[in-house]
Write a protein that binds this DNA or RNA. Sequence first.
RNA 1: GCGGAUAUGGCGUAAUUGGUAGCCGCGCUAGACUUAGGAUCUAGUGCCGAGAGGCGUGGGGGUUCGAGUCCCUUUAUCCGCACCA
Length: 921
Amino acid sequence: MEYNFRAVEQKWQKYWEENNTYKVDIDTEKPKYYVLDMFPYPSGAGLHVGHPLGYIASDIYSRYKTLEGYNVLHPMGFDAFGLPAEQYAIQFGKHPKVTTEQNINRYKEQLKNIGLSYDWSREVKTSDPQYYKWTQWTFLRMFNHWFNNNTQKAEPIDTLIAEFNKNGNMLVNASCSPTPKFYAEVWRGMEEKERMNILLNYRLAYRAKTLVNWCPNLGTVLANDEVKEGLSVRGGHPVIQKPMLQWLIRVTAYAERLVNSLDNLQWTDALKEMQRNWIGRSQGAEVLFPVKDSNLKIKVFTTRPDTIYGATFMVIAPENPLLLKITTEQYASEIKEYIENTKKKTERERQADVKTITGQFSGDYAINPFTNSEIPIWTSDYVLAGYGTGAIMAVPAHDSRDFAFAKYFNIPIIQVVSGAEITENSYDAKEGTMINSGIIDGLEVKDAMTKIIDEIEKRQIGKRQINYRIRDAIFSRQRYWGEPFPFYYKDDIAYPIDENNLPLQLPNLDVILPTEKGEPPLARLDNWKTSEGYQYETSTMPGFAGSSAYFIRFMDPNNDQQLVSTEANNYWQDVDLYIGGTEHAVGHLIYSRFWNKFLYDLGYVCKDEPFKKLINQGMIQGRSNFVYRIKNTNTFVSYNLKDNYEVTELYADVNIVNNDVLDIEKFKMWNPEYQKAEFILEDDKYICGWAVEKMSKSMYNVVNPDNIIEQYGADTLRLYEMFLGPLEQSKPWNTNSIEGVYKFINKFWRLFFDKDGKFIVTAETPSREEFKILHKTIKKTKEDIEKLSLNTSVSAFMICVNELTSLKCNKKEILEPLTIILSAFAPHITEEIWQLLGHTTSIRFATFPKVEEQYLLETQITYPIALNGKTKFTLDIPIDFDKNAIEKEILNNDKVKQLIDNKTVIKFVIVPNRMINIVVK
RNA sequence: GCGGAUAUGGCGUAAUUGGUAGCCGCGCUAGACUUAGGAUCUAGUGCCGAGAGGCGUGGGGGUUCGAGUCCCUUUAUCCGCACCA
């Protein structure tokens, strides 16, 4: 009897749903384990075969952990708000609410078809008011907190106000926007508006006018991680820099903690490195350079204060307001022109021609505080306004960009570190002895660094300083489909709405385009106001808002009193295993760590870091198929004959190709153009060409899991996705070898049935050999699952079933444990067998079998016998033989004698349990 | 330019972590059963060679009794970052 996967899989999926088989609750009797997938944004295209790779791996792991006795939290939800959802809706002229719901339903159906063990009662959708209530709630909390650098913690804004009343901001060491110093009397004398504006400089969620990435085509501002090479990640539209009043979150406050706690996470080095690069911690000094004949001072940040004697000019970023102040009348028009030209350039253009050197002299000079020489002040767009202080001391001898600039504009170059010639290139390495360097002359770079900073601090012209590349995250989007900000405006000042009135619901809007004046869509509403008539914020939160704490909400998703109850949080704590794609390496994974640390500081969550272990699954690429049409004809020629003709390569849908053999009938039906096509075959087949490319509709290489499941079943799909190769490796999808896994499922089934479909499992006692096969498999698969080496466990299952088949083993004592371990991978067929074996509850509640080492003991070892390291043959030797006994044994062996012949034996290398090597001359 | 990863049969991959290279699967070859086969089963399948045997883990060099694995060097591909002072 053939295994009817369609009936069996449907039967159990229905059973699981009806019996809430995968529902979990707090159970203090059991240890917890939290396995999380990065929840998807439900796109209109549905899932392709690449998406479930991580979901299947995490599902196998969850099921395994459950069998091992853990109480496993394994939830799923949808990242439903955001730009792409809105763009998709606009494209199809529908409301995002409608399309999002449709897409979610489609996703859920597809996920359920795969037999994933999610506890759907915990599903969250970021666009659900009951969910985003807590996103808004957290944002309000950020608004009401500041970051105390002394304690390295977020603290309530009231403590800061109290301090302002007492001492002004004179003693405050906060992570804040630049704020002038003031005394308590000054603070007390301020109007409310002024106070509110000052507090904004300290709040962890704040509003400020900053230079933003403005994307005209999308009509919104984007965060740094949403922009790549000056183009928007979504859609690839140009992005320009523009000052705008925006909501931001002060991620920079946590930069130090975000870098430091990376060390203890079980993430890949590659991922940690990406985060470190993104945070971009660099250590150096801030130094003041006085401007000649003026009270003005230019503050620079440098990581190379040791080279200060070689600073022969200064460069100020064109956007830096200081530039116009120091520019002399004579150069005013040139400088203005340079600033204008810079403004006109998009970020992309600015990055594109890095090699073109441009700049303009300001006419003014600064005094190098160590050489006391006058050095010219220039402006150039290679200095960025947003990093450091927006001004640099240029040391051409030891910085390649400064070097190129100095060469181009003929500015003197003074070498201050010995170690290399600097005629052609600068010498950037932090190694060598200081020369031409006054008080630090003769010191090594490292020592020079310490001494010069000490001196700078002593002279009070600067200080040690750590700078971060990471910027505060711009949090406003001038779009509709996102969480509304829980704020209203009175006299242009933002006031939070009462927490009891959360959620502030996203109002319905028929036309979700910007207004004629370019305001966000919500500005179309006349009644987007408080009951007192104050205007609500019209922009909405970005996509990463909703994904920053969903892993916390999953612990207690239906709680309408709290984000998460203390009880639930103390039990589930943190994510033990997080699986998702690398594309979130710096976006989501930075923001959610920040978000979590903030909630941790406030005591709402018990763990400082949310994701203990993180795995990036590899990308599944597409494998496209091609057909070859002879030019100007409707005749297609098979792959190996195509070189005899002049042909055009055309895509053929991979779904009508099997093992690179084209299904000609389906091909004719696929496109009306090909209906009358003719074919030149080889061996009566049409062979297609192929290439590995991105999985995409336009390349006709998208494989839908639904089709695979329809043809082979969900268990086969699950096993096959794992069988493809290591989880973390990127690989092309190729349906070709799925047959092998499908055969395996059927072969497993046949262990339980005879030819007539009679269930033939017996209670007979298994042989030692059968036990050995079983326990070998238990051991191997257990180790492999723990390492997430799931491809090799599939192959271990195949070996096991092959061996049991050849032994014609149908003994319950062997097959039942095997069924349990396989159930993590193939839950449907094993659930059916489990029932046939007489069980009345789901196999999910079974226990993972223990390895019994006694069955794995050998009596003999098969030793490879090598001559000079080359294996010649193998020899069975009893396991309890020691080195001497082995040597005696092999010396008496005829084959060994023959091998040695009349050569001189130099030595025997005998590694017990491993191998024997005879070294001869 | 900087950083990271990878490289093994016709293809996807495996290798007890320095000890028999190629497990498992696809594909291919031959055969059995069969009305039929895109079912199932059996045997074979790294390359060269009739064979003995030789060669073989991107290339070159090294350490070692022994290297896919360690070290040096080099090449190719992929990914990330990139005027960050």
